[in-house]
Design a protein around this nucleic acid. Structure first.
Lengths: 348, 348
DNA sequence: CGTTGGCACTCGGTGAGCGGGAGTGCCAGA
DNA sequence: TCTGGCACTCCCGCTCACCGAGTGCCAACG
């Protein structure tokens, strides 16, 4: 039917207008701004149906209509295409990210770039340790029973942990236990995925010389327990100032919990855990389980392993904003930035 | 004169009442809550003088009085003693910070603790590199002309930089330039303050074997230029959600630039640069040069070098909040936390 | 049967008008 | 020098009326 078709066009028009004006949109304004070829009266009928079906709602009688979460969901799934970036935006991405040398720098620039492009809060996850491989392990002695272990991964991420170790006994005269330990664990772990580290530990413990057992056990335990834990993933957040755009209109009273959740990181990390490269994930309003996000939408995607979509991502990045958000534009920006970051990391 | 004395008591009472109630305070309420031994009429006369002198102001005719920045300044300098922490607060500090092993952990916990104690935004600066000594330098080869240099300081701070190096020529057969480089620079720099690193570079360049000159020069340059620069100091920020307490009353319209400045870090770092251990620094409203802070106050202090007040601090920590702030309490919390952090870092 | 113009109705937002109350400044008296 | 009294000012909150945008319904039209 032509009815069905036109009704969806009306829904699309409502979403677009509401996103750009932030005012509830009425039938007359719709007819004026979009030439749908029908009169306001007809649009009113369509709107009544859309409201019945739960796609739009009115804040109060005799105001215009506003999309519901369900309406945004339908819009994202069926009514919008990811819109190509402008060439200015492409250039901005290159200008911003080129010249970054180390990982911290890349991620910091990325988060600023995304925040600026989308005018919302940007988040990026450090490359997941469990999917990274060991490039080098360094051991530095802090005190007799205290070592600093520094892990360098193939993604350029550097993590350090202090490990309490038992005192070394029975060391052969003139030997340097720490140096031996360093050689040993590098031989065992370098090149291995951290996810596989656990299985290597048993071997290592068997073959290690007796006087190093204690050290090896303690260091290995720390590596496996604290570094491979998903909870250890870190997050960079930027552009929180953008939350105050629209002066508390966008987040009525929910600004505080949102800021807290962003600082806490846990909630966002969980979202990021489910993300794959190439497939942009959109989570709208009430769809977010955590209550501090029920007034917000999250657009996220995985980065890294640039080729196949099926691969697991090194990490996720994304944008947090009001449900009243430019979804096509944000999705485009997020996807383009993720691609570029993936390339950058693959080069190094 | 007793006049002068009483007038200052009136000012103190106004600050205290206004901070706790957030309402402009009038002469009657003042007489009721504090027994100053005089009638409201007398207080009115004192208030008129105080206003004349610029310590207080009234938002509009026939409202109560509100302290000005000058009034807060006088209060902090002359009318208040840093109030001792409650034992509950002392216990909170210990409970929060004990058990932290590495530096990142200590700083992260500190910032959360301070934010919670003062119910404001907390900031802490990483130990300044230029005042730290080198504990170890690690070099890892990423590509033929690319090295990752990892610096570990005596404060437990770990920093990494990617260095582009010229290709090695004339290397003796069977030698390992990277390993030699590592030995060389560790011998040269370990134990030295980073501030002194620049003078050591010349020596090192003279004595280094010819085939390593290029590497040494590149790595030294990076160390000196990027690590010793004050701009490279990092900052941890926490509790930004506290800015929304008092629902935009505390920061009328200035919330956005404040968030931006906190994210930018530069402004806050400059403040922190001037800070010494033991001497709590308070910067009130308009006293802050940067315009995004003119509606806010900053309470900061140095931590580290636990003994003498005269020493330079390892870094600074502090609190950012509305000018309408509990200065004695905040100053006490900031000072106590800084002491504790200094102890923790001295131990390790 | 879908579309359209007309029309009555609803309801939030705005601005004017109006006490009430808190607070002040001033003054005369102690 | 302090105090009580008093007139005055001005913000705040309330009500009320009006306006206008927007709707739902209905009868008419192609």
């Amino acid at each position: 039917m032509a009815h069905e078709e036109r009704r969806l066009q009306v829904l699309r028009a409502i979403v677009q207008d509401y996103v750009s004006t932030n005012d509830p949109v009425g039938s007359k304004a719709l007819a004026a701004r979009h030439d749908l070829g029908v009169s306001p009266a007809t649009i009113r009928n369509d709107m009544a149906v859309l409201e019945e079906e739960g796609y739009i709602t009115q804040p109060h009688t005799s105001a215009g209509r506003v999309p519901t979460d369900k309406g945004y969901r339908f819009f994202v799934d069926r009514l919008s295409a990811i819109k190509p970036l402008s060439s200015a935006e492409r250039r901005a991405i290159e200008r911003f990210l080129d010249g970054a040398l180390d990982l911290d720098d890349v991620l910091a620039r990325t988060v600023r770039l995304l925040a600026q492009l989308t005018r919302n809060v940007a988040v990026i996850q450090y490359p997941t340790l469990s999917r990274s491989a060991v490039r080098h392990l360094e051991v530095v002695q802090l005190a007799t029973t205290r070592l600093l272990v520094v892990l360098i991964t193939d993604t350029g991420r550097v993590e350090q942990r202090v490990v309490e170790v038992p005192p070394v006994v029975d060391a052969p005269a003139g030997s340097d236990p720490v140096a031996e330990l360093r050689t040993l664990i590098n031989a065992a772990f370098v090149g291995a995925k951290l996810a596989d580290a656990a299985v290597k530990v048993a071997d290592l413990l068997d073959t290690a010389p007796a006087h190093l057992r204690g050290l090896v056990a303690a260091v290995s335990a720390t590596l496996v327990e604290t570094l491979v834990e998903p909870g250890e993933d870190r997050l960079l957040v930027g552009g929180t100032a953008n939350l105050t755009r629209g002066g508390a209109l966008d987040f009525p009273g929910t600004l505080r919990p949102l800021l807290e959740a962003l600082e806490e990181q846990v909630v966002v990390l969980r979202l990021m855990g489910e993300v794959a490269p190439g497939a942009v994930l959109v989570s709208i309003g009430e769809e977010n389980e955590h209550h501090s996000f029920t007034g917000a939408s999250v657009v996220s995607v995985g980065y890294g392993s640039a080729g196949g979509t099926a691969d697991l991502a090194l990490g996720g990045l994304g944008v947090v904003g009001p449900t009243r958000m430019d979804y096509p534009g944000t999705m485009a920006a997020v996807r383009a930035v993720a691609r570029y970051v993936g390339q950058l990391l693959a080069e190094s």
